[in-house]
């Protein structure tokens, strides 16, 4: 498992790995919002948690189709499926790599971009906390979607259509934590539910994704 983790991380940071693309997209997206809704700081501060969450979610979406497609094209996925590593573990590692290369940078960048949107102070912390809890689920759900569409030519658009509805619960609870955090309200309930959703996703979806991969490889 470690070997796969190291290989994929190495691939991600080498030339053509696409590392940082999601992050740049996030930055651009957040920079565009004020052009769309106007420069009033009050309005921006109020919508900042939601904008940042939706932006992070979309940036996450951007790199999903690479999770399995590259390995499928060059035959590695066939070979991994016949290797001693269970396919469930392969899926989990792939999702982990996606999170490390996308979710973690997004989480770290979000509070900085929050400054651009006049996010009120304690909100930065809760925004980071909610993203740190929520983005693993986004990566895992995305890996499931990528497994569904791995054999398809131009599956990217279909992937978004399949994955976005699955993102709804995570988005609702994650953005709720960030919003309540920014407003200084009590946020234990959404925080706990968000953690629960993420943990359940991480525990169960690798099995569904591996089953789907097996179907797609035959």
């Amino acid at each position: 498992m470690n070997a796969l983790l190291i290989r994929d991380l190495r691939l991600a940071v080498r030339a053509g790995g696409g590392f940082g693309l999601g992050l740049s997209f996030f930055l651009i997206l957040v920079a565009l919002i004020p052009f769309g809704v106007g420069p009033e700081t009050e309005l921006l501060a109020r919508i900042a948690p939601g904008i940042l969450w939706v932006g992070a979610l979309l940036s996450c979406l951007l790199s999903l189709d690479r999770i399995f497609a590259l390995d499928y094209e060059d035959g590695s996925l066939d070979l991994l499926a016949t290797a001693p590593l269970p396919l469930e573990a392969v899926v989990a590692v792939k999702a982990l790599v996606h999170w490390l290369t996308t979710g973690v940078p997004l989480t770290l960048a979000a509070p900085v971009l929050g400054v651009l949107l006049n996010l009120p102070w304690p909100g930065h912390l809760w925004l980071m906390a909610s993203l740190a809890l929520g983005t693993p689920a986004l990566s895992m759900i995305g890996a499931f979607g990528a497994a569904l569409t791995v054999g398809l030519k131009r599956g990217g658009l279909l992937l978004s259509l399949l994955v976005l509805p699955l993102y709804v619960p995570t988005l609702i609870f994650g953005a709720e934590v960030a919003r309540r955090g920014a407003a200084g309200m009590a946020l234990e309930t959404p925080l706990l539910v968000l953690a629960g959703v993420s943990l359940a996703t991480l525990a169960l979806l690798p099995f569904a994704a591996a089953a789907v991969l097996r179907v797609n490889l035959r």
């Binding site: 509805p165 709804v168 619960p169 609702i172 609870f173 709720e176 309930t189 539910v193 959703v197």
Partner: peptide
């Protein structure tokens, strides 16, 4: 996820 969304939306 649809059931989960239903509860999430109620909460929201």
């Amino acid at each position: 996820f649809a059931v989960l969304s239903r509860y999430a939306v109620d909460f929201w």
